[in-house]
Lab assay of single mutants.
Amino acid sequence: MQAFVKTLTGKTITLEVEPSDTIENVKAKIQDKEGIPPDQQRLIFAGKQLEDGRTLSDYNIQKESTLHLVLR
Rank of each mutant, 00 (worst) to 15 (best):
L71A: 08
R54K: 15
I44H: 11
T55G: 02
D52M: 05
R42F: 15
P38R: 13
L50K: 00
D21T: 10
E51I: 08
R72Q: 14
I36N: 03
G53V: 06
P38D: 04
S65D: 13
D21Y: 07
N25P: 00
I30A: 01
F4G: 02
V5L: 05
N25K: 15
T7A: 05
E18H: 15
P38N: 07
L15D: 00
F4K: 06
L50A: 02
G10Y: 03
M1G: 04
K29D: 02
I23D: 00
I13E: 01
H68D: 08
V70D: 07
E51M: 11
G10K: 03
D32M: 13
K27D: 00
I23F: 02
E34F: 11
V5D: 02
K63T: 14
Q2S: 10
K33Y: 08
K27W: 03
T12F: 09
L43Y: 02
T14Y: 09
T9H: 12
S57Y: 10
T55R: 11
S20I: 07
G35Y: 03
P37M: 08
I30H: 00
E64R: 06
G35A: 05
E24K: 12
E51Y: 08
D58N: 06
L67Y: 03
P38T: 15
E18F: 14
I44C: 11
H68C: 10
T9Y: 13
E64V: 06
G53Y: 10
P37N: 08
Q41V: 09
T55I: 07
L71I: 12
G47T: 04
Q40P: 02
N60Y: 06
P38K: 15
R42A: 11
L43P: 00
T7V: 08
E64Q: 10
E18L: 15
A28F: 12
T9R: 10
D21N: 07
L43R: 00
F4A: 04
Q49W: 15
Q62S: 12
K33S: 11
R42E: 14
P19D: 07
T66M: 10
K48P: 01
E16R: 09
G53D: 11
E51T: 07
I13R: 00
E16M: 13
H68T: 13
Y59H: 03
L50R: 00
K6T: 12
E51P: 02
T22K: 08
V26Q: 00
T9I: 07
Q40S: 09
K63L: 08
T12E: 05
G35T: 03
E24V: 07
Q31I: 02
Q41H: 04
V17L: 11
F45C: 04
K11N: 08
L15I: 14
Q40R: 12
L43Q: 01
V26S: 00
K27Y: 05
G47W: 05
L56V: 07
T7W: 11
E24A: 15
T66S: 06
L71N: 07
G53Q: 11
G10P: 02
N25S: 14
L15A: 01
E16Y: 13
L8V: 14
T55E: 03
L67M: 09
D21M: 12
K29V: 04
D32I: 13
L43G: 00
D52A: 07
Q62E: 12
D52S: 06
K6F: 08
T12M: 12
L71F: 08
P19I: 08
L67S: 01
K27E: 01
Q40D: 09
I36H: 10
R72H: 12
L56D: 00
K48D: 07
E24N: 07
V5M: 02
S20K: 08
N60E: 08
L67H: 02
G53C: 06
K6D: 04
T14F: 10
L56S: 00
L67A: 02
F4P: 02
R54S: 08
N60T: 05
R72W: 13
L15C: 02
L71Q: 08
G35Q: 06
Q49F: 14
Y59E: 02
V17I: 07
A28T: 10
N60K: 10
G35E: 04
I44K: 05
I30P: 00
I36Q: 02
I61C: 03
T14Q: 09
L71G: 07
K27F: 03
P19C: 07
L43N: 00
L67E: 01
L69T: 01
G10F: 04
T14S: 09
A28R: 15
P19R: 07
T55Q: 08
M1R: 04
L67R: 01
S65W: 06
A28L: 14
E24D: 08
Q49V: 15
T7P: 04
T9C: 12
L50C: 03
M1S: 04
V26I: 13
L8N: 13
A3H: 03
I13D: 01
E24R: 14
D52F: 03
D58M: 06
T14L: 11
L67F: 09
V17T: 03
Q49L: 14
Q31L: 10
L15G: 00
V17W: 04
T7C: 09
H68P: 01
K6P: 02
Q40W: 11
A3Y: 10
T9Q: 12
V70Q: 10
Q41N: 02
L8E: 15
Y59V: 03
V17C: 05
